[in-house]
Every structure is written in C-alpha cells, then in structure tokens.
Design a protein around this nucleic acid. Structure first.
Lengths: 375, 375
DNA sequence: CTGAAAGCGCTTACAG
DNA sequence: CTGAAAGCGCTTACAG
C-alpha cells in the first residue's frame, strides 16, 4: 500500500541498487516486463491454461523477477471474491473449538483462503453481530457452530447469498450443510452403557444455561435412553450451568450430590465439567467409580489424565474443522460437494465408570421408581 | 458482491415491494438520495466534523433509509487501509493463547478492526509464511508472540512498513513494542521461593524442544536463582519437550525421577506439563508436596483443580490481548501509544509446593553438589 | 489466444 | 464546506 513512491521498479536481481526502496510491483510492471497486455498478464497468472505456453512462461518469469504478489484488495474488488472465510465459535476457551479452529485455519490456508475469526461467548446476539460484520467484510463463506441462531441471522446470510456450513452437529433443521456428530445419539449410547452397568439413579450436568443446542441434544440423548427404562429425570436432577467450566462442574456436582445422595451416575455434557465433578467427588471422599460413575463429553486431552481418567465421548474436532473447510470451499467454488456423513462419536470407556454401587443406606423413596426390593 | 442485479433501490421503509431482491446500496445511492456529491457523502460518513451539520444529517438519514454499509474492499483499495489486523500464535491448544486471542479479537472488533488468525505450531518457517501471507493480504498491523523469528521475517515486515507488536514477552531485542511479562524474572522468583523452602535438588521440565524464547527465558530464570546458591543444573536434569502437553509432562517426570531420585523440586515451564508431572507422581505413589514439590506456569483454569492444586505463575493472557490491540491500533493510527510497562506475573502459591523433604535414602554421589553431610 | 477499455465502489487531492 | 474527476490495482466481457 505504499502510495508514496511510484518509481519504476529497477531492481534486477543482484544489481547494486542505490535508488529508494523498491515499490511493490504491480501487474502493470509484470505486463510491461513480459511485453504483454495487462489482460494477458492477469490470465497467465490466474488461468494459465488459456494462455500460449511461451507467453505464459514469459509472464511467470517476470512475476519471479519482480517478486510480484497481487494486491488482494484490488483483486477482491474487481472479482467480487475475497478468498476469505469467516468463522464464529462460542469460545476458544473450550479445547474442542480451539482444535477445530486450528484445523479449519490450516486447511483453509492450504487452499488459498484466509480465516477471519470471532467468538460469540454463547450469545446469539453477539453471534449475529459477528456474522453481520463478516458479511459486510465480504467473506466468501461462513462457518458457524450448531443449529440455532438469532432469528435474523439466516435471512441475512441468504440475502448476501453467502455459502454457509455449520459444525459440531450432523444435521440442520434449516437445511444447512452440517459437519459433526450426532450429539443426541452419543449420549443415548453413553446412558445405555451406564444402564447396562446397573445404574438406575441418574443426574445430568449440562451447560444449557446459555443457548446451546449441542448440549441440549446431549441432555435429550440421556433422557431418551433412561425413558426406555421407564426412568424419568425430574428437573432438580439436571444442573444447568451457563459455561462449561471446571468450577461449574464442581459446583453442580456438590449440589446434586447433596440433594440426591442416591444418584450413582452423573453424566456431564462436557469434559471440563466432568473434570470438576471428579475433583469434587474426590474432595468429598466419594470413590469413583466404586461409589459413583461420572462421564464426560469431548475427549479433550485432560480427559485421559484425571484420576480416574474419564469415560467420555470422542468428538473429532480436527476432522470437523478440516472437512468444514473442504465442504465450504466446494460450495464456494461450485464444485460437487459430495454428501456429508456424520462423524462417529466413539464411546471412550476409561476409569470413571463402573458397575452401579449398592444403593446407599438412607434410601430416598421419592426417586425409587424401580422399587426392586434391594437393600 | 451481487454484480448481477443493478436495479435502482426502490425500497422505502414499509413499502410493499414486488421488485427483485434489493441490491446492496452503494455510496452513489446514498449521495443521490441525500442530493449531494459522492465526495460529500463519503465525508459525511467518515469525517462528519468537516461537513455542515444540515447536510451531514441528510446523508446519515439516507444511509439509514438504504441500510447502507460501505464495501470494505473498495474502501481498502482506495484508502490503502484494510482495518484488518493479523495475529499468528504458536497454537490455540494452549489456553494461554486461546484466551489471549479471544481478548485480542474482542478489543479489535470493538474498535472497528477485523482479526485474521493463523498458527505456526512453534515452527519459525510456518510463522514466516503466515506473516508473509498476512502482509500480502494487506493487514494494517501484526501481532506476534515472543521475540525470535525467522531471519527474514522482520525485514519483510519493515519493508511493508507494517506496524507490529509482540506479546507474552516484556522486552524485545529487536525493539518491537512488547506486551507481556518478564518470564525470566518470574521463574527466578519461583525458584527463590523453592530455595527458601529448603530445596536444593532441582529439575526443570521445559518445552524448549522447539524454538521457544518464553520457555527458554523461564528456564534461565531458574538457573539464575539456583546459581546464586552455588547450584548448577546439569543438562540431564533438564527435560526438553517439544510441545507443552500433559503427556509430555508425565513422561518428563517419569524419566527425571527415575534418573534423579534425589530431586525434590520439579519446575515446569507450563501448567499443562505440571499437570502431567503431578499425575505421574501420584501414579508412582510419590506424595506432593510432602515428598516433592512441583510448579507450573501460566495459571490456566486447570491449574487450580489438580490434586493438589498447582503453585504456578499467573500470566494475564486476556489483558495481554486487550493491551496488544490498543497498542497496535495506536501505532496504526499514529496516536501517541504511551509507554508499555510489563505486566506483573504473580506467584500463585497453592498446594503443590512445600518444604523440602529430608533427602531420600539411596543417596546419589554424583549429584550431591552440596555435600552437606546429611544422611 | 490476445488486447483495449470499462468497471469494481470507494477516497482524496485539487479547485472553487 | 462542497463537487468534479482522477485514481486505487486488479478482472473480464467484448472484439479481433
């Protein structure tokens, strides 16, 4: 953007150069050096196939000589394409999003796109503003998370005709291409697993305190599974935290445990909260998994390192980021995108789950739905 | 970027509209509606002070009516400013960078700038490529991490005359404005603290396996402090991990402990590695802090939740991100930036440190530098 | 396959 | 304070 110095670039390679610092070469200089028109220079660079090989070589050589790199703003203005993709995630504080963004950026970069990033802190209004800003910026495509947005968001995106994919979910009611896992089914299977271990008394720690369709689906998956056993989960056995922090998990566990000592299985919708729950259980002298079982979700690094290590659900965040990039670029470039199949959300069984313990001494009538005559 | 439909925007508010979807309004439409020239319309929006109030109102009203938002690419091309800032961090996998980036983005956004993000995976060459791509993109400023870069990086940035700040360090040999903490002094104080607790046998777990001047400085801080006590750290008491992962900390601890059972104080240059070290100590039945002390660095969320919780050094990541944004914008906009003072890196004493235990039974001659006659 | 020219949507000296 | 006009650095119909 050096508008000041307009000297003709006179820097041949290795030539002693006492003139002022070389201005950035423009396409015009390349064209002149290659003795072709601006149009041909542009084509030789962007659509090499339609240019005679001989001329193409000349242009490319000139590009080399002058160390030419096109001005992206000019290119964007005249072509209507920015080669920029916007992503808005709830937060980078959750490793699952940090990893996904990393992979997304890596793939985007490898394919010639630049990533613009922002975060909404789980606030739909903030998310809407970020989306709008990105649209105004002129992004070629948008990557979002989940399947529930501020009411105006989707219409706005459609109005801009901007390609869009969403992530961390595997289907969208809105018909948006979705790259992710089936959250509901994953916790359904987790709950089934616990049921098979003999558990009948459940509690859920969910970060559904702020709008979060992924965690809501995870919660629903648990409800599905236990409903099949004729078990219902009263609202006071569900702790809804706003943010999926370790301390939230701690606090949730402390309260649920105090109110419902008969619960033997605590399902958390994120690993961070499960880490907090495990830590709190330890502090209270409750043995995991002998006395109670605790499960997480995400399978982030820390999940394997707690004591005991967490039984959890693996979310392939990097793959999600990578595939999201590919799918979005396919749409942007009008290529056949290919069908998207959900990623498998593997159950990862580690040490934090085990057979249900015998019911505790002071049994609680109200919640003994299956009066099985135990104890 | 809808180049297709060029209809005159005829959408007055609340008017039934059967015409094709309204094209995005341009400055030209605003000017026409406000009955002023393009130049005046532009000025009324960007430099309201130099336009007569009456006219300004007319233009702003037209902007409102037409829901006008300027095309950023056109604006960038003609003004030479993109209002875009690039940041390249080693990884988002470390919470310290995730938090910093979050804060950076938030402040940048609030001040009208857009963040372009990429990550280098601690690889100077990748970092260089990212920097080059951002420069070509036309960023108005750059945020980097640390104070050591690929040889060509700084010259390239200077050639582009692009404002630059660096973060997580508090000084730069290269004279770059630096927003961060004094890493070396922080671990110096940490080591002093351990010395005062009676420790004399040290080991360090550092993620200096890949180029990392912050961790190198942290390692040096430890060496400084113990050197004052006449203690030197033989190379085999320093474990250099490439990445600051929990498993790396585990592995490092296992090896150091096996080779040097007399060590009572393990200093880690990141919390993640300290978490691994604590976990491994527990697995081996070594009591923390009774038998040994372990320290971290960063004070990320997990640091307070291990058992025992980590004694560590607080790195104010969010503040660093926020101030980096402010400082960079000040430079970009030619405002007086104000001096930068290092952030305080507070020592956070928790449960993972305690008085040095009595030397272990099987004493190792080679490493008994201070032959103090203890049994 | 190549070139001359218009155009992308703004900003900004330059006059008035 | 306002306007006419040139210009930012590319791309892309349109002819040839």
């Amino acid at each position: 953007m050096d508008k000041t110095d307009k000297k003709t670039p006179s820097q041949r390679k290795g030539q002693a150069d006492t003139s002022p610092p070389p201005a950035r070469a423009k396409l015009e200089h390349v064209a002149r050096l290659a003795k072709v028109s601006l149009a041909t220079a542009s084509r030789a660079i962007n659509q090499p196939d339609i240019v005679r090989p001989e001329i193409r070589e000349r242009v490319l050589h000139a590009v080399e000589m002058l160390d030419y790199t096109p001005d992206r703003m000019a290119k964007a203005l005249s072509s209507g394409r920015t080669h920029t993709v916007g992503a808005v995630v709830p937060t980078l504080g959750n490793a699952i999003f940090a990893d996904g963004v990393e992979a997304l950026e890596a793939r985007l970069g490898a394919r010639g796109y630049t990533l613009i990033l922002s975060h909404s802190q789980y606030d739909p209004l903030r998310e809407f503003r970020q989306i709008r800003a990105m649209l105004e910026y002129g992004v070629d495509g948008l990557v979002l998370v989940g399947d529930s947005f501020a009411p105006d968001a989707l219409p706005l995106i459609r109005h801009h005709r901007t390609p869009l994919v969403t992530t961390y979910v595997c289907a969208s009611r809105q018909g948006i291409p979705a790259i992710g896992i089936d959250n509901r089914q994953a916790t359904y299977r987790m709950a089934r697993y616990l049921i098979e271990l003999g558990h009948r008394e459940f509690a859920v720690i969910a970060n559904t305190g702020l709008p979060n369709d992924r965690s809501r689906a995870r919660l629903d998956g648990v409800l599905d599974a236990i409903a099949e056993e004729g078990i219902r989960l009263p609202p006071d056995r569900i702790f809804e935290a706003p943010l999926p922090s370790i301390v939230a998990g701690r606090e949730a566990f402390r309260r649920l445990r105090a109110a419902h000592p008969s619960v033997t299985a605590f399902l958390c919708t994120t690993d961070a909260m499960a880490v907090g729950a495990v830590a709190e259980a330890r502090r209270e002298g409750i043995r995991v998994p002998e006395d109670i079982s605790i499960t997480g979700f995400d399978d982030v690094e820390i999940a394997a390192e707690t004591d005991p290590p967490l039984t959890t659900v693996n979310v392939p965040a990097s793959e999600i980021g990578t595939v999201a990039a590919d799918q979005l670029i396919a749409i942007i470039e009008g290529a056949p995108a290919g069908p998207i199949s959900p990623f498998e959300a593997k159950l990862v069984v580690r040490g934090s789950t085990g057979p249900a313990a015998a019911p505790v001494i002071r049994k609680r009538r109200s919640s003994m739905r299956r009066a099985s005559g135990l104890a």
